[in-house]
Design a protein around this nucleic acid. Structure first.
Length: 861
DNA sequence: CGGATCGAC
DNA sequence: CTATGTCGATCCG
């Protein structure tokens, strides 16, 4: 987010102060020099539990480095030469794939939160301020930075560095609004721009540049917005005038040392007359125009980078901040020139640890990174050194791929020590409640629950458990989380578990395809079964979950207080599961056992007796899987009466589940392998011969960030596989091979040629209604089949008229247009990084996961 | 799959 | 007193 994060660290050798960071102090300004800053930080830090843990982590990194160095010693010149050949082969390929045709822009608001706060409160303007709290700062203004006050620094230490520091609490709502205003501008230049948090964004202005050439001048003409300056801050706001006068001087209020950058090639230069500006048609002019408009609209300044790919653009925006911009021309030499002396730490994705490891190898700059490419290929994992190679060649993503579906959702909280099991369970439940709420907002259900704990010594642990049927409600999540927590409590018994943070995460979501076919109708059908004849719940027991949902919503700490008062009293019957625990505090194992029973009991009430909507036979079981299996079989047409037998009969199912489009009847694993190899492509095979040499040396892990610059495999195999898998699950017996082939083709066409809608209408027979369906796409056919299934089957049977409408969420979840995307992103931490896997790996991985999905569980989730 | 780690904002 | 929260990715066992 901020430009201050990486500044100044790289020259430091060792120690935890690395992360505290330093400033580049300007002579004469009030502020502190590096030494003083480090001294103050050290005094405030040393001896603390936090510091001890930092030392420990540092030691671990050192051990990693030592291990790496030992490996390095063993490498023979022979091996190195061989590696050099292999790597350089790849370099040639990469060089040929270099794509300089895109114009990517990275926009970065300057000291965003602090700037907003200063804008809205003029009293702060002359002062050093930081935004955050006494325990953690999010950002600081440039004035405060002179004192060493930086993002990610606790406020109390910042106060020691700068006693006059004003700490302003975070106000995300406000930042979100401002961010939206900025996005409204950005979307005009690239409707598919990619926001990264609230204060950054990437734009691909390639198209805009082309169109702009034909634009009349008045479309590039803007007015200085003098009217919006209120009486109150008129004196402070000289930016407009400044802008007019010397064409982009920094806003004096915020930055005294910023770099004016509105001076470029004269023929491109914008002209300004009176309160009018006209911007040119070059990339630089476009970006100036963007920055101008941002400042006019929000009174905030932004920095920007222009380059042929995202990695370079990001580094460019860092170059002249605050309130500046920089461009790398789309030429190989310009790129390499930029990188030559650039410290690797400036590269997005190279963090503190990687920097230190590389430094141990004598690598500090990007050109050194290139020089050592052979060595790196022997010391690091393939993904890592590929990434290093990309960096040192200046290769990066030339397009802004839409962020994929969310992979996980979590919530965590830091607090002062909590050490009683009672409080810990209660807190855990509260986290589960919060998480469940958010999950339901997005309609997500996941299979894996992860509990995160940080003890008072700042040691972090995570414990995960994945369950068969996906979870989304508070009760479901808590049922898993409390077991994990119980195990941890027991593991330190008889000592109390002393924690300062707890978090709960749900991951392993159903994919888009799975969700589409998850047959919500049957789900809601089951749920509303309380009023339906198909699902008879045992009398009087079915409201348990609702009751616990209706339990008090106060925060954990409120509840804790209340709970103490109630301690001697009997627990009210509508207490939550978590609270029932606290009756009995003999041992945590006991507690867990008890909750387990309660929840199991609840669960067991959900479907005691169930009439199958397909065969109308009553099924009595409290095992969802068995019921699923039964329904599945019914739909298959192979009606088997005895569900117990069915459960043994896995083989047939396995085959259908592992179905891959191209596989036909081959052995599935074999097929998968072939697929993977087929997709592996040249660079894979290029590196394989060397395996013998690199294999005996243990590779070091490394971080692979956002570098999917090699173009992705256009066809999305996994989606096809998943889709086929779904179809197989629903209609395995009636689906003819012809249909499968057709699906494959149509799906491929969809995937490979997104633009051309070449449609040879084909006729498919709906397996439900048996009518012929003319289809232009797989999707429309699927839709028909589903409608058929729901209408024809379920609706009729249940006499409920309103199911199908609910079932078909036709909303395509792929809307990405600027603002809608922006709104999704109000959360400052939308995922940003892409897979660092090579294409082949990523495809085969996805294919694998799509194969392992289990049956008609979907019906219930 | 689970756990630890890294990195970004 | 007082060292965040949320997410994605990788790697290893």
């Amino acid at each position: 987010m901020d430009d201050m994060k990486k500044a100044g660290n790289s020259s430091c050798n060792d120690g935890v102060l690395l992360r505290m960071g330093l400033n580049d102090n300007k002579a004469g300004m009030q502020g502190l020099d590096k030494e003083k800053i480090n001294k103050i930080i050290m005094e405030a830090t040393k001896g603390s539990r936090f510091y001890e843990n930092e030392l420990k982590k540092d030691q671990q990194v050192n051990e990693r480095i030592e291990k790496m160095m030992r490996l390095k010693e063993k490498i023979t010149t022979q091996q190195l030469l061989k590696a050099q050949l292999q790597v350089d082969k790849l370099v040639i390929e990469l060089e040929q794939s270099r794509n300089l045709s895109s114009t990517i822009v990275h926009i970065d608001m300057d000291a965003f939160y602090a700037a907003v706060e200063m804008r809205d409160n003029p009293e702060l303007k002359e002062k050093p301020i930081a935004v955050g709290s006494m325990s953690m700062l999010s950002t600081s203004n440039y004035h405060a930075r002179r004192f060493g006050v930086r993002a990610a620094m606790p406020g109390f230490i910042a106060k020691k560095l700068c006693p006059h520091l004003t700490i302003v609490p975070l106000n995300f709502e406000k930042y979100g609004k401002v961010s939206k205003e900025v996005r409204e501008i950005l979307t005009e230049y690239d409707p598919n721009f990619m926001p990264m948090g609230l204060d950054e964004a990437y734009l691909n202005i390639t198209e805009h540049l082309e169109e702009r050439l034909n634009w009349p001048e008045d479309k590039r003409r803007f007015f200085f917005n003098t009217e919006s300056i209120t009486e109150k801050n008129k004196d402070d706001r000289k930016t407009s005038a400044k802008f007019n006068e010397d064409a982009c001087s920094p806003s004096p209020v915020l930055f005294e040392d910023s770099t004016p950058l509105m001076d470029d090639a004269p023929e491109q230069k914008h002209q300004s007359v009176g309160n009018l500006v006209v911007f040119g048609t070059s990339a630089e002019e476009v970006v100036k125009e963007i920055r101008f408009r941002i400042e006019q609209k929000t009174q905030l300044t932004a920095s920007a980078g222009i380059a042929p790919n995202t990695m370079l653009a990001k580094m460019c925006s860092d170059r002249n901040k605050p309130n500046g911009q920089y461009r790398i021309a789309p030429e190989r030499q310009a790129v390499l020139g930029f990188l030559k002396d650039l410290p690797i730490r400036k590269v997005p994705g190279i963090g503190k640890v990687t920097e230190k490891m590389l430094k141990a190898l004598g690598i500090v700059t990007c050109s050194e990174l290139y020089q050592q490419r052979a060595l790196l290929s022997l010391l690091f994992s393939e993904a890592s050194w590929h990434n290093f190679l990309d960096i040192s060649l200046g290769l990066g993503s030339t397009r802004l791929d839409k962020d994929g579906e969310r992979k996980s959702m979590s919530t965590e909280r830091t607090f002062s020590e909590i050490n009683t099991a009672e409080d810990q369970y209660s807190l855990c439940q509260e986290l589960c409640r919060d998480l469940a709420q958010q999950l339901q907002k997005e309609g997500l259900k996941g299979k894996t629950v992860t509990l995160k704990l940080k003890n008072v010594n700042f040691e972090v642990k995570t414990r995960a458990s994945t369950v068969l049927s996906s979870v989304s409600t508070e009760e479901e999540i808590f049922a898993v989380a409390k077991d994990l927590l119980g195990t941890e409590i027991d593991s330190v018994a008889p000592h109390p578990l002393r924690i300062r943070l707890m978090g709960v995460r749900v991951s392993g979501f159903l994919s888009e395809e799975e969700k589409k076919y998850q047959q919500k109708s049957i789900m809601s059908f089951l749920k509303s079964g309380e009023e339906s004849s198909f699902l008879r719940l045992q009398p009087g027991k079915c409201n348990q979950t609702q009751k616990s949902e209706a339990s008090p919503r106060g925060s954990f700490f409120d509840k804790k207080r209340a709970a103490r008062q109630l301690k001697s009293e009997n627990l009210a019957p509508n207490e939550t599961v978590g609270k029932q625990l606290f009756d009995d505090r003999k041992s945590s194992a006991n507690l867990v056992e008890k909750t387990k029973k309660v929840t199991d009991f609840q669960n067991s009430n959900v479907c005691k007796i169930f009439t199958c909507p397909v065969c109308f036979e009553e099924q009595s079981s409290n095992n969802l899987e068995e019921l699923n299996r039964h329904i599945d079989e019914c739909l298959n047409g192979t009606l088997v009466k005895d569900p117990v037998k069915l459960s043994k009969d896995h083989n047939a199912r396995e085959n259908t589940l592992n179905f891959l489009p191209q596989c036909e009847n081959e052995n599935v694993d074999e097929c998968r392998k072939n697929k993977a190899n087929q997709l592996a492509g040249a660079d894979q095979s290029a590196s394989t011969p060397d395996h013998s040499t690199s294999n005996n040396t243990e590779k070091f892990t490394q971080i692979i960030p956002d570098k999917p610059h090699r173009e992705r495999q256009p066809s999305n195999l996994s989606d096809i596989a998943r889709n086929m898998c779904m179809k197989q699950c629903l209609f395995p017996k009636r689906m003819s091979q012809d249909h499968e082939d057709h699906f494959e083709k149509t799906e491929h066409r969809k995937e490979t040629s997104s633009s051309s809608e070449a449609k040879d209408d084909s006729v498919l027979v709906c397996p439900v209604c048996n009518s012929e369906q003319k289809t232009t796409s797989l999707e429309s056919f699927n839709r028909h089949v589903d409608v058929c299934l729901n209408k024809g089957l379920i609706q009729e049977l249940t006499e409920k008229k309103d199911f199908p409408a609910k079932t078909y969420n036709t909303e395509s979840s792929h809307r990405v247009g600027g603002l809608s995307r922006g709104q999704q992103c109000t959360n400052p931490s939308q995922g940003t990084k892409r897979s660092g896997l090579t294409t082949s790996q990523s495809v085969s991985k996805k294919a694998k996961s799509s194969n392992s999905k289990h049956t008609i569980e979907m019906f219930f989730k």
